[in-house]
Design a protein around this nucleic acid. Sequence first.
DNA 1: CGAGGAGCGA
DNA 2: ACGTCGCTCCTCGA
Length: 486
Amino acid sequence: MSNIYDTILGEYIKNPGKKWLGLDDLAKKLFQYEMISYDSVTNKGKIDFCDIDLETRAKYSGEDVYMTSLLYKKQKEEKVPDNEVLQNIELPLLEVIKEIELNWVKIDKKILEDLGVIFKDEIVKLEKAIFEEAGCEFNVKSPKQVGEILFEKMWLASSKKTKTWFSVDAEVLEELARENNIAKLLLEHRTFQKLQSTYIEWLIPLINQKTWKIHTNYNQIVTSTGRLSSTNPNLQNIPSSVWIAWEIRWAFIPENDDNILIAADYSQVEIRVLALMSGDENLVNAFKNDIDIHYNTAKLIFWKDEINKDERRIAKSVNFWVIYWISPFWLAKMLNISQKDAKSYIEKFFENYPKVKSFFEEVIKKTEETWYTETMFGRKRYIEWINDRNKMIKQSAERESMNMPIQWTAADIIKFAMIKISKFLKENNLKSKMIMQVHDELVFDVPKTEKEFMEKNIKEIMENIISGAIKLTVDIESGKNWKECK
DNA sequence: CGAGGAGCGA
DNA sequence: ACGTCGCTCCTCGA
């Protein structure tokens, strides 16, 4: 009989995020037992489960419980494999995730409802204005109908196409908005509609009526980049940069009036990881001497000491996009500069941070030879299509093999931080709770009496997860709600 | 019910 | 032809 850990890990390492084993798969693989499928008892969902005869229902449900208990027993008996990532990160993290999920997050329902009224008002007003501009009524929420109005009725110039139709995404509308009021109105409508449907109407019913809290699910194994994901609701995409949308965070509050929220953010974690992994002297020195990294890059790519705001902005994008191995074409488009300039900035970046380039080249070479790429902590990701003959596939495999070590290492860092902080909270008998994880940010619900102690120690723990040539830095913010933690 | 378009976050 | 990952909404045609 095969080992439960080997069975699961085998699948996961081969194809993280793409496929994982369900209870029925495990039953088959580990116990050679074929479970009754839900599809077969309900005739592919055509029959309501409650209408099935009791015996079949009992058998189906019983199997579920029985198999789970068998697996639990088997797991208890088995030795945890000699796998550092599993022992040091994922298994301890499982406990921490459980704690976060059980802590829940308190929501001020009234604020959401008030915002909902304001948004609804705007939506109605905008819709009316749009109909007036268009000269007829249509479904503003339908991209197809919007396209028909703009390009077939009003005869505006279309700039982009989707697979099947004229594209009417934000980029196209922004282009049109320069001269056409209707495009501007449509954009605003989209913003409010998105907020209303996804963050107000979706969130409110998920608030528990007794506790006024929401209970999100964190998933440990769905991503291919080692990150967590969150569902029901997804707390990892609550608006932050979009104009009025930030207000949604107003509704995220501490458990009671004696508490506050503390948000701890890793700053520029990915580019710091790049510095650590590549060991590039210029990059490392900039961080060591606490020089603004975007300013530093700006000085290097523009060959001068006086840097204006615009130049810093460009450098910031170059820093950011180089990590993702972006093409000059795309960078030019993003920054609204010529392709020639974009190309020269990217070249200058690599000239000045030479070890970044050689690091990337080595990663690709190694992946081509071994078919896997790995993080600072030795976590492997197999990329079997790295030697594909198709140039497009090959290129995307190369991008993935370069990006994965950085993004995945960053994910591992925060996972370590979560484990250590959870331990710290217990050891010091603190009342503070960890309530959210948003990729590089951790949010805590903290009694005011513990504020200073928490802030000092969280920062300390998070910044010292890895020791290397440079230190990670963490920004700590606090407030009466999540909105104030910026 | 699923695909496609769109948009939010990191 | 042109960043990755993931979640959720809406429409529309099967």
